[in-house]
């Protein structure tokens, strides 16, 4: 367990370097963007001085990390608002979207995967596989536009875009989150469906399932035995898919005009708003690392054999 925590910290450290350098590899000069195309060179130089952009990159990096560890991610180059404040404001929105998408993905993916494995070769299995293939192949932006076209324009039962804070109006918030969550969760559910199906099919033919049957238990309990051993695969995939989910969230928020992290990142990229971009990406990476740490911990619960190995460390 300690080893996983240390690994996570090292990963975060390396990721922060990559993010920091990566952001600076973007074409375009933030000082120029800030000062305007036609600015006086003296003004541009002053801005460089103010944001520390004239220092060597490694000094910039250590200054940044030192401050970031104290919760100070600098100020937005556009409106001088502290980045930490912006992040705290945007993070819950994306967390809600991602949470709902994971809920959609797990509910649909797990259910479809279990049904198609248990009823292998049936119509339900066939239908789930077709769904899985489509869900994997269809890109978010296209699915999002189709969803808007169908639900918002043709049926007019759900709003096409916009966001209302949960604290303001919970019902309206959820109503506006349904489509984005479905769009974002579809790809995840397709991956989970396929992985659950494959893992469960493998486990259902295991010797211990035959043992369970020899005890006279019902078919559903047999499946429960097998499912328990399939969940490690499912949890792994879920952890790995989180990266894709973050990418998908950026696009989904753009389509549905949700002022979350994704939108923040895109806006920051186009405005060369280094501090905001860095902070946002770093927080996203931290989230990814934390989720994978949680996956490791979940393993120990799901697979007793790993509990022993973890305890010995």
């Amino acid at each position: 367990m300690l080893q996983q925590v240390i690994t996570s910290i090292v990963t975060l450290f390396l990721a922060s370097i990559v993010v920091f350098v990566g952001v600076r590899l973007l074409p375009g000069d933030p000082a120029l963007v800030l000062a305007g195309e036609t600015a006086d060179p003296a003004v541009v130089a002053a801005i460089r001085e103010q944001f520390g952009l004239n220092q060597p990159i490694w000094i910039q990096y250590f200054n940044y990390v030192g401050q970031a560890l104290q919760g100070n991610f600098g100020v937005s180059t556009r409106d001088r608002i502290p980045v930490a404040e912006i992040l705290l404001q945007r993070l819950p929105i994306t967390l809600e979207l991602a949470g709902l998408a994971i809920l959609v993905g797990v509910l649909i993916g797990l259910t479809a995967g279990i049904v198609s494995a248990v009823k292998r070769g049936s119509f339900a299995d066939y239908a789930a596989n077709v769904f899985g293939l489509i869900g994997l192949s269809v890109p978010h932006f296209w699915l999002g536009m189709l969803a808007i076209l169908f639900f918002a324009i043709n049926l007019q039962i759900l709003p096409a875009s916009g966001y209302v804070a949960f604290t303001e109006d919970p019902a309206e918030n959820l109503r506006r989150m349904i489509l984005p969550a479905l769009v974002l969760g579809t790809g995840l559910s397709a991956v989970l469906m396929r992985q659950t199906r494959a893992a469960l099919l493998g486990q259902l033919s295991a010797d211990y399932v035959r043992t369970a049957r020899s005890k006279g238990v019902s078919r559903s309990r047999e499946v429960k035995h097998a499912l328990r051993n399939s969940l490690t695969t499912v949890v792994t995939v879920l952890g790995l898919q989180l990266g894709a989910l973050i990418g998908g969230a950026i696009i989904t928020e753009q389509i549905f005009v949700i002022p979350g992290f994704g939108k923040l990142i895109i806006d920051a990229v186009s405005a060369r708003n280094y501090p905001v971009l860095q902070g946002a990406v770093l927080v996203a990476v931290t989230g990814y690392v934390l989720v994978n740490l949680a996956v490791d911990i979940a393993y120990a619960y799901l697979n007793p054999r790993m509990r022993l190995a973890g305890g010995a460390r």
Binding site: A206, D207, Y208, R210, T211, A212, R213, S214, K215, G216, V217, S218, H225, R228, N229, L302, N303, P304, R305
Partner: peptide, 25 residues
Amino acid sequence: RMQAVRGKEISVVFQEPMTSLNPAY
């Protein structure tokens, strides 16, 4: 009805002790 018989009236010991028990329970 066979489920009610299995494990109660007729039970089985299998060949493979290493894999015949569920590793998760």
